[in-house]
Nucleic acid binder design. Structure first.
Length: 353
DNA sequence: AAGACGTGGGA
DNA sequence: TTCCCAAGTCT
């Protein structure tokens, strides 16, 4: 025990003294822990308590719950929200009742595989119920961790969450994973709060990077990824002899000055008759002759990641005169293309046509 | 990976 | 009052 880091001892001592007496902390029955953890997903402790009390007196053991009809389980859940939690829990409990003789499995893989059991719930139930040495990383833990070590990575990122799990696994005190996990969560709930952290009352105050740097209000970083902007583009693919029609992009901004296939941005995600007509007219203005091939492609533009699909083609264009900044290119000019990879794919697809 | 899933509490 | 949003799992 003396081998543990001092801050782990401070944390554990704080938890022993300050933790709340909650209904699911009366004993370590893994079934009771499990129910509490599922109810606590996205739900505040004060909201959960009355539901938990009622639920446990209605379904005192795992086999009681497994034997109940789903309607009754949902009825007991009524008002708690996220009802798939209840349905998954019921299904999982029935599986445990049937396959594991009503005993909650203590093997991580087995328990994690049950419906409704994700990384957090698996860690929480197994560590709290059985002292299995596995971290339980919820929003509280991410916040405490990010502040304590001064981590400014986005904690919403699954990759970052994985790193946190791994880091915590390495510092878990032997045989104390239950108290350790609960202590961090309790600290997050009572002291290291999102809005007004009580740093003066924190057992980790003197070794906390955020406190030292007065960064507790800036951490954790939780940047929602801007929902990817999607553009649907109708692309004109015009070939005359061995040459392809391209145009020059604007001199500023994304892929400035590069050459690209001419396109129009569509209102709707699909090429319709109007777009076809416009593109056809466009190719006429560009003077495509009847022996030229005109394809219409569809780009889907997500951020700067481009996917495409070849939709239709026609070869009914009329003669024309090419105007700048349009230009016909052949094979050797391709290095100037924007979205060159996509262009190459289009060409090879058309060759195979 | 991004949105759906419920409700309650805070801005 | 209305709007915004939390931070687990599934799809």
């Amino acid at each position: 025990m003396s081998l543990e880091k001092a801050w782990v001892q401070d944390l554990l001592s704080w938890y022993e003294k300050e933790h709340r007496a909650l209904p699911w902390r009366q004993n370590r029955d893994p079934y009771r822990i499990w129910i509490s953890e599922v109810m606590l997903q996205q739900t505040k402790v004060e909201t959960v308590i009355p539901y938990y009390e009622r639920f446990m007196s209605k379904f005192p053991t795992l086999d009681d719950l497994a034997a109940a009809p789903e309607d009754e389980v949902l009825k007991a859940w009524e008002g708690l929200g996220y009802y798939s939690r209840a349905r998954h829990l019921h299904a999982a409990v029935k599986e445990v009742s049937a396959r594991y003789e009503g005993r909650v499995p203590d093997a991580y893989e087995a328990f994690r595989a049950l419906p409704g059991v994700g990384d957090y719930t698996a860690g929480a139930v197994l560590s709290i119920g059985y002292d299995v040495p596995v971290p339980a990383v919820d929003g509280n833990v991410l916040r405490v961790y990010a502040r304590y070590v001064g981590m400014n990575d986005n904690v919403l990122s699954p990759k970052v969450q994985k790193r946190v799990r791994e880091a915590l696994y390495l510092v878990m005190p032997e045989g104390r994973s239950s108290d350790f996990n609960q202590a961090i969560m309790e600290l997050g709930a009572l002291v290291c709060k999102p809005k007004s952290p009580r740093c003066d009352d924190c057992p980790l105050h003197f070794t906390c990077v955020a406190a030292r740097l007065q960064m507790q209000h800036e951490l954790p970083v939780r940047t929602k990824s801007v929902s990817a902007k999607v553009e649907h583009l109708a692309v004109l693919i015009l070939r005359s002899e061995d040459k392809w029609l391209v145009r020059k992009r604007p001199t500023r901004g994304l892929l400035a000055n590069l050459w690209e296939l001419p396109y129009v941005v569509m209102e709707n995600p699909q090429i319709d008759g109007n777009i076809l007509k416009a593109l056809h007219q466009f190719s006429n203005q560009l003077g495509a002759s009847t022996k030229d091939f005109v394809w219409v492609g569809e780009y889907k533009h997500v951020f700067s990641h481009l996917t495409w699909e070849l939709k239709v083609y026609s070869s009914e264009a009329e003669p024309f005169e090419v105007m700048m900044p349009y230009r016909w290119i052949d094979e050797k000019d391709r290095q100037t293309m924007a979205f060159g990879q996509v262009f190459n794919k289009i060409l090879s697809a058309i060759e195979k046509w």
